[in-house]
Structures are given as C-alpha cells and as structure tokens.
C-alpha cells in the first residue's frame, strides 16, 4: 500500500515541524486525546466491545501521575509508570466483571463503573475533590537529560509517547493476537468452537486498552500540570467515543483525526459554554444517522470507488 505509506510519512513530517506553526500545548493536548481515542478504538473497532467508561482509566491515571510526582516527589517516569499500571489494574478488575455480559450491557456496565470511580474521586482525599490536583511540577526527564520547561522540547517527548502507543496498537492489531480478536468480534461462537478462550482474549484487550488510555491520561497530567474531575466524568467517556466515531471506527488513523477535530472545535468554541455539548450532541446524531463510517472510513470508501472507476 504505497498511498498509506505516503500519507504516514507526510503526517509524520507534519508532526515534526508542527510546534513551529501551532501552539505546542494545544498540540500536546490533542496528541494525548488522540492516543486516548486510539486506545478506545482498539476495543470497539477491533474487539467489538464498546466501553462507555474509558474516562475512568484516563482520569485516574492523571491522578496517579500527579500524586506520585507531586505528593511523593518522584521522577516523572515513575509517575507515568504509576498511571499506566494503575489504569491497567483498574482495567483488570472492571474488565473481568464487564465481560461477563455482552452487547449493550457491556456499555452500561462500564459506564456504571466509571460513575462509581467518579464518585470515589469526588470524595477521596488524594484527588482533592472539586479543586482537583493542581500545580503538578514539571520535572526534567531521564534524570535531568531532557529539560521540560520548554514547551517545544516537551512536545517531542509527548510525540514520542504517542508514537510508542500508536505503534503498540498497530503491533497488537497485526499480530496473531489481533487476528483472534477480530475473529471474536465477527463471530464469537465460532472463535470459541475453534478453541480460543474468547473471555481471556477480551480481558487482555480490555487491560491493554485501559493501560494505553492510562498512558494518555498520565501524559496529559504531565503536560497540563493538573488532574481534575472532568477527566473521570461520564462526559469525558462520551467525548472519546465521539472522537473515535468522527474519525472512523475500526480504522487505525481515524481516532487520531477525530481527536484533532474535536479538540480544535472545543478550542474555538470555548466561549460558547453549554453550546459545546449541544454541538457534540448534534455531531453524534448526524454521524449515527448518516456517516457511520466516520471521516476516514468515508474517505477510504470514496478513494476505493474512485480507483475502481478510473
């Protein structure tokens, strides 16, 4: 696929020069959400499980990062590790329970667990409730080798983290493990009859997805230096679904595109207040009614039909 390779190279080049053309903090936030959306899409697009509670991994990882780096005064690498490990552990517990039900129940169960985590965060002392965990210090990485006070330097760190996560997802999907996941998505009974323990595969995919969402959340806390209740709320869980949906479910680049669109939109509409939610709602409705493949999915279809015609 030469087209795919060209597109990838162009995007990579654009990502490398981007901080000289756009506000680095905006780009870093968008990259964190892009990774979050990719992690979510790993589950929905490739295993067919719709988690409506992914904010719990994203938001909790931010709190873990902040607590380790600020309250325990540890290096940021350990903070990121704590975020990923904490999210994975939370994913293991909630995932093991949620996969006991299928279809739409799975979405409701993950949503309910996320709400439980939200209420926990409102009350737990280490999250500082409504105030949030603020003023997380930005420390140099790799024992002082990489200073992070400069936003552009930090941008390349975040880009590297994003690419690591993206590459990991690419590897999962194109490995035998990924093939089994797709088989389970398309026909679970058949996969089971062939001897695959579907529940184990689902759980592993869920934990991986949670861990990557945690990586995104911890990175976001590192960039913005705070972790708040917004990131664990049900609205955030809905937002990541929207990002994946706008870009295109089941396409690997789709969620990245979707995340950039939604974050850009929020940036421009910040003054519109409640209307951001209304617009998000309208996008949900329009996509479900008319563009279920999302932007990347529709574009790919258009490209294919054009080539067939020409």
């Amino acid at each position: 696929m030469t087209t795919q390779r060209t597109v990838t190279l162009v995007l990579l080049a654009a990502a490398l020069v981007a901080p000289w053309f756009a506000y680095p903090v905006f780009l870093m936030t968008a990259l964190c959400f892009a990774l979050f959306a990719c992690a979510f899409n790993l589950l929905l697009g490739y295993v067919g499980l719709m988690s409506f509670g992914h904010a719990m991994f994203f938001g909790m990882a931010g709190y873990f990062y902040g607590h380790v780096v600020k309250a325990w005064n540890m290096p940021p690498e350990l903070g990121l590790l704590a975020g990923v490990a904490g999210a994975a552990a939370l994913g293991l517990v909630t995932g093991a329970l949620a996969i006991r039900r299928q279809g739409i129940y799975f979405a409701m169960i993950t949503l309910a667990f996320a709400q439980m985590v939200y209420f926990f965060c409102v009350q737990a002392p280490f999250t500082h409730g409504e105030d949030g965990l603020q003023g997380i210090p930005r420390k140099a990485l790799l024992g002082g080798l990489i200073p992070t006070k400069d936003d552009r330097v930090l941008y390349y760190v975040v880009l590297a983290i994003f690419l690591f996560g993206y590459a990991a997802i690419y590897r999962f999907i194109h490995s035998p493990f990924g093939q089994v996941l797709k088989a389970i998505r398309d026909n679970e009974q058949r996969a089971v009859s062939l001897g695959y323990e579907a529940d184990r595969y689902k759980l592993l995919a869920f934990v991986l997805s949670a861990a990557l969402a945690g990586l995104a959340g911890a990175t976001k806390a590192m960039v913005l230096q705070f972790a708040t209740l917004t990131d664990v709320s049900a609205a955030m869980s809905g937002e990541v679904v929207l990002m994946a949906l706008v870009g295109g479910l089941g396409t690997i680049i789709g969620p990245v595109v979707g995340a950039f669109i939604i974050i850009t939109m929020q940036n421009y509409l910040a003054a519109a207040g409640e209307f951001v939610l209304v617009i998000q709602g309208v996008i949900f409705v329009v996509i479900v009614m008319a563009f279920r493949k999302g932007l990347v999915g529709e574009l790919a279809d258009w490209w294919k039909s054009r080539r067939r015609a020409g």
């Binding site: 679904v241 939610l277 949900f284």
Partner: peptide, 11 residues
Amino acid sequence: GFLLTFGLALI
C-alpha cells in the same frame, strides 16, 4: 441506538 440517544440527551 445507544449513541444516538446519548447525542439527543446532550442536545
């Protein structure tokens, strides 16, 4: 259906 009604609730 879940996503559509979620969007409607937001609106």
